[in-house]
Amino acid sequence: MIHIYTGNGKGKTTAALGLMIRAAGAGKKIFFGQFVKGMAYSEVTIINGQIPQIDHQLFGRKCFIKRDPEPEDYKAAQAGLHKVKELIKSGRYDMMVLDELNIALYYKLFSLEEVLAMLENLPENIELVITGRYAPPELIEKADLVTEMKEIRHYYQNGVKARKGIEF
């Protein structure tokens, strides 16, 4: 199945992490690839130290959300997508989480056509989870499950900065 967690509300990566923990508890092998992000967030500390069923890799450099992507950002994302394609073919994983893939698509770090072609060749035994705002309609159409996180209120609007262990 293909899952998409999208929308402007908080909780997309968090939902994917919960699903990964559930799958790990069931003895499944998981790959957690994070696009755009170049910093290991707090969840990575516990995953790398305590949950051996989850393999993690960053496919970003530094946050460019407030600037234009640089050539190195494109290279990192494209190398990440190439790696994901190889891992899909390997059959090594029961679940693959592609965190912020939608953001990488939004910034055109690689093409939607390339992602859709990858999904055409997705083996039936892989549960694929894609997160990030701005999921394109073509990807939503391809998915088996789509959840939209809708922001109603966020303390960020009141000047609260991102907090370790909550937002990162």
Rank of each mutant, 00 (worst) to 15 (best):
159 G>F: 00
53 Q>F: 06
56 H>L: 12
9 G>F: 02
135 A>Q: 07
85 K>C: 10
161 K>P: 12
59 F>L: 10
107 Y>I: 04
17 L>T: 02
112 L>R: 03
157 Q>H: 15
128 L>F: 02
7 G>M: 12
50 Q>G: 07
55 D>T: 15
103 I>N: 09
93 Y>Q: 07
91 G>V: 06
44 V>K: 10
99 D>I: 04
168 F>Q: 08
19 L>I: 08
97 V>E: 02
42 S>I: 03
129 V>N: 13
73 D>I: 11
20 M>P: 02
35 F>W: 02
136 P>Y: 00
164 K>S: 09
141 E>S: 15
165 G>M: 05
136 P>I: 01
87 L>T: 03
57 Q>H: 11
6 T>K: 09
115 V>L: 14
149 M>H: 01
86 E>P: 00
166 I>K: 04
15 A>S: 13
148 E>S: 07
89 K>E: 09
125 N>P: 03
35 F>Q: 12
75 K>A: 05
98 L>I: 07
58 L>F: 00
97 V>P: 00
136 P>R: 01
20 M>I: 02
113 E>L: 06
38 G>Y: 00
49 G>V: 02
9 G>V: 05
18 G>Q: 05
12 K>M: 11
93 Y>D: 09
1 M>Y: 00
60 G>M: 12
109 L>M: 05
33 G>S: 07
92 R>K: 14
24 A>P: 12
68 D>L: 15
158 N>R: 11
15 A>V: 05
81 L>H: 08
28 K>Q: 15
33 G>D: 03
147 T>I: 07
61 R>I: 13
98 L>V: 05
66 K>A: 13
168 F>L: 14
30 I>Q: 07
119 L>C: 04
1 M>N: 06
128 L>I: 04
45 T>W: 03
127 E>L: 09
39 M>N: 09
116 L>R: 06
167 E>W: 05
16 A>P: 02
63 C>Y: 14
163 R>I: 08
47 I>T: 15
131 T>C: 09
117 A>Q: 10
68 D>C: 12
10 K>F: 01
19 L>H: 02
77 A>K: 07
9 G>P: 10
89 K>W: 06
61 R>E: 14
59 F>E: 02
38 G>M: 03
78 Q>D: 04
59 F>T: 04
80 G>T: 11
20 M>D: 01
36 V>H: 02
122 L>E: 01
65 I>W: 14
17 L>A: 08
62 K>I: 15
154 H>P: 13
144 D>Y: 02
140 I>H: 07
133 R>E: 08
